[in-house]
């Protein structure tokens, strides 16, 4: 039996509203908010990046797990905004936690599903008995080109999970992957901003892969949508996950805790993992949770977790997602946002 033994999240305190971005580019904020089901997004402070968000989330995960970080045998950080092109984020996270030197680490990239890739590997390593504990982090300070549709949603945040074989808060019931080569979104070497296929990111990309992964894991486990207490899909905006969920027979009470995008934005590798953390903040014992990520390029990882009686005992050891999301917010005007995101060119 393997699963999650601790989890933690980190959300920057800064926000920008859809109206503020739309004002700069002459776009219609009402249509954007309705079309994307998105009101505002998080913005990293100038001294926050993928590594700092990952470390702060991982510290809370270790706190909830109640373990000695030196016993963590593997650390995987999934992101598309690693601070270095060459030099691992995982070494920074491992060193800051106190997991070095007897630890295996790797940085992962797969657009928005790099976080769940780390979760998959961490769970399988513990299951195989290769390590006692493994840490998986999904963290991003995602980029959207000025004026592009992505600028309204690309946000920042991190979720971290410590996996183990005892003292579980959520047992892994099963997992299943669904992956094809679908070029719906990419960023080339040295390019600052990603490019995407516009409407092509919908049906043949996000919707096909999420649906494929859900159907595959339902077949594998013999479960049906109504068996789940909660479900979380990747959230590039607030519209796609709700559309697919409803089409597949899921209902609002199942995604009410995990749907964070309307006030958080799309935290890319942190997106569906943060939705899982927010759901663990509220779920009771013996409840079934379906988690399905999506990463452009393209693929989905599906996981079924069953919560345990230890979950309510440890959740108050660190801040809940809802508290990080809803309190101590500072709203930015576009100028400060552009400075924070280093969109303003300065002389060297």
């Amino acid at each position: 039996m393997v699963g999650i033994i601790g989890y933690g999240t980190q959300i920057p305190r800064f926000r920008i509203k859809v109206e503020e971005i739309a004002k700069v580019w002459g776009a219609d904020p009402v249509a954007l908010k309705r079309g994307l089901n998105l009101n505002e997004k998080s913005v990293p402070a100038p001294d926050e990046d993928c590594a700092t968000l990952a470390v702060n989330a991982a510290r809370d995960a270790v706190k909830r797990a109640g373990i000695n970080p030196a016993e963590i045998g593997a650390v995987y950080v999934g992101s598309e905004s690693h601070p270095y092109a060459v030099k691992p984020t995982g070494t920074i996270v491992s060193e800051a936690l106190g997991a070095c030197p007897f630890v295996h680490t790797a940085d992962l990239e797969f657009a928005c599903k790099a976080g769940t890739e780390g979760m998959f590997i961490a769970l399988q390593l513990v299951k195989a008995g290769a390590v006692k504990y493994a840490l998986a982090v999904g963290a991003d300070t995602s980029q959207g080109a000025p004026g592009d549709a992505l600028e309204y949603s690309a946000s920042a945040g991190a979720a971290a999970f410590v996996m183990g074989a005892d003292n579980l808060v959520a047992e892994l019931v099963d997992t299943h992957a669904y992956m094809t080569d679908t070029p719906d979104f990419w960023r080339r070497e040295h390019a600052h901003y990603p490019e995407h296929g516009g409407r092509f990111t919908g049906e043949p990309a996000y919707k096909k892969h999420i649906t494929g992964a859900v159907n595959a894991i339902l077949d594998k486990t013999g479960l049906k949508p109504s068996d789940f207490n909660y479900m979380i899909f990747h959230q590039p905006n607030g519209k796609f996950p709700v559309q697919v969920a409803k089409k597949m027979g899921f209902t609002e009470p199942q995604y009410r805790y995990g749907l964070l995008t309307p006030t958080l934005g799309n935290t890319y590798s942190g997106s569906s993992p943060m939705g899982l953390a927010a759901t663990l903040d509220e779920a009771g014992p013996d409840e079934l949770i379906l988690l399905v990520s999506y990463g452009s390029g393209a693929g989905s990882d599906a996981f079924v977790f069953k919560t345990t009686e230890r979950l309510p005992e440890i959740r108050d050891l660190a801040p809940k997602v809802k508290k990080q999301l809803d309190t101590n917010k500072t709203y930015l005007e576009y100028g400060a946002y552009a400075k924070f995101r280093r969109k303003i060119l300065k002389p060297e």
Binding site: A45, D47, A51, T52, V55, N56, R59, P83, A96
Partner: peptide, 17 residues
């Protein structure tokens, strides 16, 4: 306390946390 970026050695240099 939180873990944060302190500064960096320009665009191509080391990032200090």
């Amino acid at each position: 306390s939180k873990f944060r970026r302190m500064n960096d050695e320009g665009k191509t240099g080391m990032i200090m946390y």
